[in-house]
Design a binder for these strands. Structure first.
Length: 424
RNA sequence: GGAGGGGUGGCCGAGUGGCUUAAGGCGGCGGUCUUGAAAACCGCUGUAGGGUUACACCCUACCGGGGGUUCAAAUCCCUCCCCCUCCGCCA
């Protein structure tokens, strides 16, 4: 959420920044609502001040002259004032809801280092690591490899659940588990604290990180009692500190969290229908940071490096791109995507997305900290990034390490976790 | 699922309708004392919004969340959430 005061005082700046994201938002009605809100607020506060003062007088009078007509008069006057206040208060509530709702639908402002562009075609490549593997045969798709080696069963997954689900079996299931443990161990050794959170969360948590109210159709929801399945560990882990005031000494906080993730993939019918790329349920190891505002861009760089290290240790070629303003996620101020090379598809595919949300989520979730020598509180900056998506890492390993005879070599870093050198 | 108890400031803990602008303690900050420290003593000690746009000052709100009664609510009523104890069930 944007700072209401900032929007109120700089509507043109906000409008310009959002235009870069492709949002054309009318601030006129917001500004007049906001003006009305402040007017009502002042009016109510003045009346309340009068009521408070007179109530004190009533108390005194009741003690000294309980029978005076003055007492009756004041009480009836205050009764009337109270009615007036009630009317104004309900007006205020209505307009506050409108203002609040308006702000909840406004995305974050892009950082000034983010390239301006209309969509994903204008994202900018930052760097590459490694080289694509060369094959003296035509490399297969991961779903073919997975089927041939008996690692993935899409057909039976369709029977027991539906499309966009997979059953992992044998070495496939083991590969999934090995990757989770490998990534967790790596990030823990870099100072991240492991968290295993609830996979169902309440509405306030979804609002806190920005999934709600705007993106309800992407989420699996449970009624009675009302819960949402997490689309990423970002949600429960960022909300760990919702409505908290941290101490400056607590920061920075680094968490790493393995969780299953659940997404409806509502808008992507017909996209990636085969294979593991786009599933309703997938595993992910997520990195989440809470930092001081002045450190957050440095922290974004190191977060991205931490995610990249996973690919480096696995020996997988990748590139890093910075998302342009038009492709930026709703809550993010700046995002790097890490794209791994997939020989089966002969293209790079997103395997990690690392974002700095600045104080956007912290405002929504009310996560603040107290500085040593300053009064009051500041909002923390929150960041997160995949480190990495497990399913897509499985895809990358199968496609990059496949052999002519159909077997798949296990990357060296993973062998202690797999217990075998080769999957055949 | 049944019965009972409870959620108060960074922490502990008083407070059942009006000198509570939330007692007292701990912690923290500043000061006196001291060669220095400790102890003792004194003072200060929240968040947010608004008016000023200066955290000087004034006002308002906040005692788990929301709503209500009343001139007046931490205190009474309704509702929801969470925690604890016992019983039942259960991985």
């Amino acid at each position: 959420m944007l700072d209401i005061k900032f929007v109120r005082e700089n509507p043109e700046k906000v409008k310009e920044a959002l235009k870069k994201r492709g949002y054309n938002i009318d601030f006129d009605s917001f500004l007049s609502m906001e003006e009305e809100r402040l007017k009502l607020l002042r009016e109510i506060e003045n009346k309340r001040a009068i009521r408070n003062a007179v109530s004190q007088e009533i108390a005194k009078l009741k003690k000294l002259k309980p029978d005076s007509p003055e007492l009756e008069r004041l009480i009836s006057e205050m009764r009337q004032l109270g009615d007036e206040i009630n009317v104004l208060e309900s007006k205020l509530r209505t307009i506050e809801d409108k203002v609040q709702n308006f702000l909840l639908y406004i995305p974050n402002l892009p950082h000034n280092t983010v390239p301006v562009g209309k969509d994903e075609t204008e994202n900018v490549e930052i760097r590459r690591w490694g080289v694509p593997p060369e094959f003296d045969f035509e490399p297969l798709n991961h779903w073919d490899i997975g089927e041939i080696l008996g690692l993935i069963d899409f057909e039976r997954a369709g029977k027991i659940a539906g499309s966009r689900f997979a059953v992992m079996k044998g070495a496939g299931a083991r590969l999934e588990r090995a990757l989770i443990n490998f990534m967790l161990d790596l990030h823990i050794s870099r100072g991240y604290i492991e968290v295993f959170p609830p996979l169902l969360v309440n509405k306030d948590s979804m609002i806190g990180t920005g999934q709600l109210p705007k993106f309800e159709e992407d989420l699996f929801k449970i009624e009675e009692p009302e819960y949402y399945l997490i689309p990423t560990a970002e949600v429960p882990v960022t909300n760990l500190h919702r409505n908290e005031i941290l101490s400056e000494d607590d920061l920075p906080i680094y968490y790493v969290s393995y969780t299953p993730c659940f997404r409806k993939e509502a808008g992507s019918h017909g996209k990636d229908v085969r294979g593991l790329i786009r599933q309703h349920q997938f595993n992910k190891v997520e990195l989440v940071k809470f930092v001081k505002p002045e450190d957050s861009y440095e922290e974004l760089e190191s977060l991205t490096k931490d995610a990249e290290e996973v690919l480096q240790r696995l020996g997988l070629h990748y590139r890093v791109i910075v998302l342009c303003t038009g492709d930026l996620g709703f809550s993010s101020a700046k995002t790097y995507d890490i794209e791994v090379w997939l020989p089966g598809q002969k293209r790079y595919r997103e395997i990690s997305s690392c974002s700095n949300f600045e104080d956007f989520q912290a405002r929504r979730a009310n996560i603040r900290f107290r500085r040593r020598e300053k009064k009051g509180t500041d909002f923390v900056h929150t960041l997160n990034g995949s480190g990495l998506a497990i399913g897509r890492t499985v895809v990358a390993i199968l496609e990059n390490y496949q052999q002519r005879d159909g077997s798949v070599i296990v990357p060296e870093a993973l062998r202690p976790y797999m217990g075998i050198d080769i999957i055949r």
